[in-house]
Design a binder for these strands. Structure first.
Length: 289
DNA sequence: AACACCCCCTGTCGGC
DNA sequence: TGCCGACAGGGGGTGT
């Protein structure tokens, strides 16, 4: 479930295995994932040393000593796997479906980093030295919800121009970058806000953000932070199992809980599911207004 | 300009 | 048991 917390969890897993290492070989098992690989992709990676592994919204950013940056997106089903050739098969069982291993990076540390993506909605790209912020895949992205500058006032301002329902606006990566279908639903539930409420109306208050915007900003930050904390703790266990980085099961308050009781203390509502712009929205009619 | 809609692709699950 | 449609964490392109 690669939304911001999952991508951040993957980043934290990859960073210690990748930073400082040199890429010795790049194996592409096909010519494209969702998009074709950029020109001279293998050459631009091979022999380069990795200086950092960062994240912007749901994008992983692998910084190279050439100044270029490898941009990776997990799409819906992408994951990375770390294997250590020096340790061997006992600690690193094979993936269940190696047929979806599309990219294999062999590092001089002896570790192998494999990108696996059954649905191939993920992709990789390269940004030239100095061209990361202007790269077409990143240029239009909105505010990082976990950055210091994200607060109720900024959230309200970002939603002010929207005529869309609140949940659709939260999924718009040009406004807030990193929320996906799960955490948009979860944040709205926490803030007791209906996903159908007009987003632009959250902004309109004299002298500052509305109570709803304040609650929503806090809910977004809290739900993302908690998910990252949960992923971080799950990560260690998961890696002992098979070295895979990508999917972690969390327990959600509303997502995928259609027909089940609302978990809010004192609320007797039942979780409903509706479609909004083609995606499922889970919410409680009783306590989300 | 700012939406809503459809599509990309594979796998899984529930209903018949 | 098998088949078939619905649906799945995302986002890019198109049409209104």
């Amino acid at each position: 479930m690669p939304e911001l917390p999952e991508v951040e969890t993957v980043r934290r897993g990859l960073a210690p295995a990748m930073i400082g290492a040199r890429i010795e070989t790049v194996e592409l098992r096909r010519g494209d994932i969702r998009f074709p690989f950029p020109p001279r992709f293998r050459e631009r990676l091979t022999g380069k040393r990795i200086t950092d592994v960062a994240r912007r919204a749901k994008f992983l950013l692998v910084k190279l000593d050439s100044g270029e940056t490898l941009i990776a997106h997990l799409g819906m089903s992408g994951s990375f796997r770390i294997e250590d050739e020096r340790v061997g098969e006992f600690y690193t069982p094979r993936s269940k479906d190696p047929k979806h291993d599309h990219v294999v990076l062999r590092l001089d540390s002896g570790k192998t980093i494999t990108f696996n993506d059954p649905r191939r909605f993920g992709f990789m790209d390269l940004a030239e030295d100095g061209g990361l912020d202007a790269h077409p895949r990143l240029a239009g992205l909105g505010l990082e919800p976990l950055s210091d500058s994200f607060d109720a006032a900024r959230l309200a301002a970002l939603l002010a121009s929207s005529g869309a329902p609140l949940k659709s606006a939260l999924l718009d990566q040009k406004r807030i970058a990193g929320l996906g279908n799960i955490y948009a639903c979860e944040a709205l539930w926490r803030a007791k806000l209906s996903p159908f409420r007009p987003a632009g109306r959250l902004a309109r208050a004299r002298g500052g953000p509305t109570k709803a915007a304040t609650a929503l900003a806090e809910a977004i930050r809290a739900v993302l932070k908690e998910a990252i904390d949960a992923g971080g703790s799950t990560l260690r266990d998961h890696r002992q199992a098979d070295g895979a980085l990508g999917y972690f099961q969390h327990s959600f308050d509303v997502y995928d809980r259609e027909g089940k009781p609302c978990r809010r203390t004192g609320c007797r509502g039942t979780i409903a599911r509706d479609m909004q712009s083609g995606r499922s929205t889970f919410y409680c009619r009783r306590c989300q207004k």
